[in-house]
Design a binder for these strands. Structure first.
Lengths: 325, 325
DNA sequence: CTGTTAGCGCCTTCAT
DNA sequence: ATGAAGGCGCTAACAG
């Protein structure tokens, strides 16, 4: 194409790629010409695309991770393609297949693993194929055997939170948990129970109410708590969006936070930083999750032992929880 | 590749593509084989990728739009690649170039146009090249000459809001505006002023305070208002995240909402649906913006006249604004 | 319907 | 340093 300008083809390709834009003629053409990434990919056998699979982009948890990923990608001149499973675990494998077809250099899977055997098995196979084709993959959240992981210490964070709430004087809790099928929710719940146990308190299993891992789930769980007749001075929601849904429900049936009941969440998502009362939660450096994941998949191959990067969660005590005399 | 299974090449390509998986042998291979999208793109001359360029994914405004786009893309078996400018307008052209190189079928540009002449001009050129190569492009927000647009009626929405606030009894306003360089902010501000003018009220230009179009911008603007000594019964923030930042500032210097001062925002972003007091705002169907944009770029070419799809904004009066006796 | 033959647009040895 | 040739993995227009 641009041979009209110079004369040869290989040469043109070279110094177009080599950064040394020599013939001024090319510079002129540059205004509109760009090599086809598709053709380059076909010829080279790989591209500079990295895939990101999330459960729900519109959830601030995932959009912050996405921001971390796009930021890191930009610095490496990589392009990120986004897939949103809409919280249907079985979609992950499907999207991974699409990304494999794209011959992405790497894929980042953000979000809790589920306990659906069929989906997870199919995902495992897709991952194996992807890696077999020379691609890199990183998980964000829980570890999957054999793949690099940015591991969020959900359990430890929830344990610390439970202890702090206990030390604030709370003795009766209700846990607004996500679906039992989500590892993230399970880890947080069990960590929380462990923290209470550390202080000698055993929580009745009926005090754990399961619902969707969303705002509406939190609302519904709080409603179910209300009709359950279970007493509690403190509610722990397994994530912030559930907590905010629960707060809405509490408001609706006239319980004030934190005067009537304290509440705590998990994640420390940004849009909630300014609500009132400020939400007690467990902070996760969400953007960092994304950049770390990019770091893993872009790093030179780590050999046979999968890399694991642990991310600590830190308790943020705020107004939505109060001291019990 | 898979010719080992059958014998021919074209045949394999055909019924792999044609859905009629004939030879059982292939079905066996299918477990791991997938045609390379890169090579397909090279051969066909186009791909099933659509690009999405946003100002900031972690902003709920954009993440909701992204959700709409990914949802629509999924239905059409398209793949979306995401680029985040981090609110630097000059990045748009750069990313558009990357996407052009990818030979995307289409690109969606979400977010306010700026008034930076240089960036906009460069963007215009990129768009022209992109379209010249046979790609489709759609804007979300304001119209750009010659390109399909999902036009948000910011001005009308702000005008309606102003009238409603006036009718609530408010007579003194302060506008917390975004940067003067952002069309979206300008449109909302001018619409708001127009609405007041419709009721016979003229707002002193000093009552318009400019800041970043972010939470921190809203916080800063509210702080500047405080020290300005200007009196007002109602604050209008040009978007919700600014409004929430302003509310944080108000809380910090002990002004209660809505008792001391009413406040209104714009966008009706989801994470704010449950805050207290509930925020008066102007609703935009954000996900719809994304799906409509996909509709535009996937529709058969609209001829020479660019398509424009207008999206209405509707006022949502809530607790953060009160009636003035 | 199937197999053959050209490309698609680029990159990469390999000589020169 | 530069040009020629071969190939990347697939599709499409053409014959059989």
């Amino acid at each position: 194409m641009a041979r009209l300008a110079d004369g040869s083809v290989a040469t043109t390709s070279r110094d177009l790629n080599g950064g040394t834009q020599r013939p001024a003629i090319e510079l002129g053409q540059l205004l509109t010409y760009l090599p086809s990434a598709a053709a380059q990919g076909a010829a080279r056998g790989h591209t500079n695309v990295v895939g990101l699979i999330v459960h729900d982009v519109s959830d601030p948890y995932f959009s912050s991770i996405a921001a971390g990923v796009t930021g890191a990608a930009d610095e490496q001149d990589m392009i990120v393609t986004l897939a949103d499973t809409r919280r249907r675990p079985e979609r992950e494998a499907k999207y991974l297949a699409s990304l494999r077809q794209l011959r992405c250099r790497a894929v980042i899977l953000a979000g809790s693993r589920s306990t659906d055997q069929a989906s997870e098995a199919r995902l495992q196979r897709e991952i194996a194929s992807f890696i077999g084709d020379g691609g890199r993959v990183a998980m964000i959240s829980q570890q999957l055997p054999g793949v690099d992981t940015v591991l969020v210490e959900n359990s430890a964070g929830a344990r610390d939170l439970a202890r702090d709430l206990f030390d604030l004087g709370h003795r009766s809790f209700v846990v607004l948990a996500g679906p039992a099928s989500l590892r993230t929710s399970r880890d947080r719940v069990s960590g929380f129970l462990q923290g209470l146990a550390d202080r000698g308190l055993r929580l009745d299993p009926r005090h754990v109410i399961h619902a969707d891992f969303t705002r509406d789930g939190g609302f519904a769980a709080a409603m179910r708590w209300r009709t359950s007749g279970i007493e509690a001075t403190c509610l722990f929601a397994a994530n912030d969006v559930m907590a905010v849904g629960a707060m809405a429900a509490l408001r609706q049936f006239g319980r004030s936070v934190p005067d009537d009941v304290s509440i705590a969440g998990f994640d420390d998502i940004i849009p909630l930083h300014d609500i009132s009362p400020a939400m007690t939660t467990v902070h996760i450096p969400l953007e960092t999750l994304g950049t770390e994941a990019m770091g893993l998949v872009l790093a030179p191959h780590g050999g046979l032992t999968p890399q694991v990067r642990r991310i600590r969660c830190t308790v943020r005590l705020r107004e939505s929880t109060r001291r019990i005399p």
